[in-house]
């Protein structure tokens, strides 16, 4: 494992901790898209089917379990928690995420590395992860104001993607055979979706002002 991959995993972990902190400390999930969180839960559940079949390392196994458990916990909180669910911006979180699931599944059936159950679900999870942030970005755009922790949550998620691209570049030059093009292309699409958000995030950071997205 190289430093970029590790930094990517850590920023991913931090983003989840920031989100859990926001929900726990403020007992509110305003500004957070339940649709995006449900998509992430589905992404982890379908990608980590290999928990039952392959062992890579203790690190990988623990991280996989953490990602599955935390994404399910967040969805549970936003749907079931007596106090938290009241702050959910239901009226503006209207992105039709079922279409993203359907499109990702069709693409996975058509484009995969091998026609097996695991490989198709792996490809599905990669495509779905690339698109899963869309409901969140649309929600932020609609609400205009972004509170600090929500802004940092999305920032760390984007940073995680950026580090993964550096990781692939590094692996491309250091490993003899590297052909993970499904993951790489989807990863580039996914990171590009954050470009607009990053632009406004850095402007607000530079001006030391509250993050605001244009309508």
């Amino acid at each position: 494992m190289n430093i970029f991959r590790f930094a990517g995993d850590m920023t991913h972990l931090i983003s989840i901790l920031v989100l859990l902190l926001k929900i726990y400390a403020t007992k509110s999930c305003s500004g957070i898209s339940l649709k995006t969180q449900e998509l992430y839960a589905l992404v982890f559940l379908t990608r980590y089917l290999d928990l039952f079949t392959d062992f890579i390392s203790v690190y990988n196994t623990i991280m996989k379990l953490v990602f599955i458990a935390s994404s399910l916990a967040i969805v549970w909180c936003m749907r079931m928690h007596r106090v938290v669910r009241r702050s959910y911006d239901k009226e503006i979180d209207t992105f039709r995420h079922y279409f993203l699931i359907l499109a990702s599944f069709l693409l996975a059936v058509l484009v995969h590395e091998k026609f097996t159950f695991q490989e198709i679900f792996w490809a599905f999870s990669i495509y779905l992860e690339a698109l899963a942030i869309l409901p969140q970005l649309v929600l932020l755009q609609r609400s205009g104001n972004v509170d600090n922790l929500t802004g940092q949550y999305v920032f760390f998620l984007g940073a995680y993607r950026a580090f993964y691209i550096l990781n692939w570049i590094y692996r491309y030059f250091t490993e003899q055979h590297f052909s993970r093009w499904i993951a790489c292309l989807s990863g580039i699409v996914q990171t590009a979706l954050y470009a607009d958000f990053f632009y406004y995030y850095f402007i607000s950071w530079k001006n030391n002002a509250k993050l605001q997205l244009p309508a």
Binding site: T53, I56, N60, K64, E113, E119, W122, Y164, F178, S179
Partner: peptide, 10 residues
């Protein structure tokens, strides 16, 4: 060489 299972990234 294609990267079938196992996948080593998260």
């Amino acid at each position: 060489e294609p990267s079938f299972y196992p996948k080593d990234e998260l």
